[in-house]
Amino acid sequence: MATTDFDSEIRQLKATMHTIEQVLDVDGMRREIAELEEQAGSPDLWDNQENAQRVTGRLSQLNGELERFTSLVDRIDDLAVLVEMGQEENDADTLAEADADLERIKKSAEALEVRTLLNGEYDAREAIVSVRAGAGGVDAADFAEQLMRMYTRWAERNKYPVEVFDVSYAEEAGIKSAEFAIHAPYGYGTLSVEAGTHRLVRISPFDNQGRRQTSFAAVEVVPVLEQTDNIEVDENDLRVDVFRSGGPGGQSVNTTDSAVRLTHLPTGIVVSCQNEKSQLQNKASAMVVLKAKLLARKKAEEAALKKDLKGDVAASWGDQMRNYVLNPYQLVKDLRTGHESGNPSAVLDGDIDDFIEAGIRWRRGGVEQG
């Protein structure tokens, strides 16, 4: 087994952190934190609720980013001390511990380096994810459900809360569509690279002749709104339908018409929510999603950047951005970045960090072939 060149590795880590420090503008971040703390300490801060939420939200975000950076610098310094102790005492156990720490720190540094690429207008926001079955019948519905599980499992792995707004179940298996929020810092910037059409190739479990089937599902990602976003919805532009919440196989979730479907007549955007127990709560949650979609649409139109904000969601042949092949071989491949994995089961179980990282680098013009 090759001996780790700790001196070289630590020098490289410190060089990476220096670059990250410049990109993040850590000194500027500290100055802004000091200014915001002064504003936050003002006795009349909450006289203006909108400004107060902006100040406290920005302060929390900056403190989190600074803590992430400084704690990683401290971990690298601690690693250097551990290596020095192990080398002086020629202690194999200490050096093995240092080797394990080195790998963890390198992974954290890579993740922070990718985070510095998330500097778009809405990248710091949490994300609302929509998954919709495309061409492929029952296999597509089943695939859509697998993708929903993939993203929720990814969130669970990272300890990010998931809030499901609506799931429309298909008749035989799987789902027609689903809408859910992932409450993660930089959730939109991170997951927006997942937007587009996903393609599955496998032996269909729903075909009694065991034939190979190709199916599609579309993923859309929009940023969660903040109080400072100016999105007004005229009640006259809305059609509100109420219905009874339902689960797989048409099973009733409750006995009242509490689920709400909002149709925004000028744009045709339809949003449903059946997660909450009351009609009012469901309407409020549906409005959150609707406004987020209207914001994405507005900004896309203003900047003529529809593909950047929402991705290509046609969900049909020729539009796919990632292939999941389970037969005749096992491979998941992103067609934009070239990144691939020979373990589709792990990917569909939420192991998508490498795909996301490659997507972020690709989007920022720094594609790494993997």
Rank of each mutant, 00 (worst) to 15 (best):
Met85Val: 13
Asn51Gln: 15
Ile33Pro: 08
Pro43Met: 09
Arg31Ala: 15
Glu88Leu: 11
Asn48Lys: 11
Gly28Cys: 02
Lys106Asp: 00
Ala109Met: 03
Arg31Val: 14
Thr94Glu: 10
Leu72Gly: 04
Arg30Ser: 09
Ala100Cys: 08
Leu82Ile: 07
Glu37Gly: 05
Val55Asp: 02
Leu72Ser: 05
Arg54Gly: 04
Glu50Asp: 14
Val73Met: 11
Arg31Gly: 10
Leu36Thr: 07
Asp78Tyr: 01
Leu95Val: 04
Leu102Gly: 09
Ala100His: 15
Ala52Ser: 11
Asn63Cys: 07
Arg54Pro: 00
Asp78Leu: 04
Glu67Gly: 10
Glu89Asp: 15
Ala109Val: 15
Asp74Met: 04
Glu50Phe: 08
Thr70Met: 08
Pro43His: 08
Arg54Gln: 13
Glu37Gln: 15
Leu82Met: 14
Ala34Asn: 13
Glu65Phe: 04
Arg75Met: 09
Glu103Pro: 05
Leu66Thr: 05
Leu102Val: 06
Arg54Leu: 12
Ile105Lys: 04
Asn51Met: 15
Glu35Tyr: 06
Gly64Gln: 09
Glu88Asn: 13
Glu35Phe: 05
Thr94Phe: 07
Ala40His: 05
Gln87Pro: 00
Ala109Pro: 03
Leu62Trp: 00
Pro43Asn: 08
Arg75Trp: 03
Gly64Asn: 12
Arg54Phe: 09
Arg68Asn: 14
Leu102Glu: 09
Ser71Asp: 07
Glu35Gly: 10
Met29Thr: 12
Asn51Tyr: 14
Glu32Ile: 03
Arg31Asp: 14
Asp74Cys: 00
Gly41His: 01
Gln53Pro: 01
Gln53Ala: 09
Arg58Pro: 00
Trp46Ser: 06
Val73Glu: 15
Asp47Gly: 12
Gly57Glu: 06
Leu62Asn: 06
Ile105Pro: 02
Glu110Tyr: 14
Gln61Tyr: 13
Gly86Thr: 03
Ile33Trp: 10
Ile76Lys: 01
Leu66Lys: 12
Glu65Thr: 11
Ala100Arg: 15
Val81Gly: 00
Leu36Arg: 05
Glu37Lys: 14
Arg31Glu: 15
Ile105Tyr: 02
Leu72Asn: 08
Trp46Leu: 08
Glu65Leu: 13
Lys106Gln: 12
Ala52Val: 05
Asp99Met: 07
Gln53Cys: 03
Glu35Ala: 14
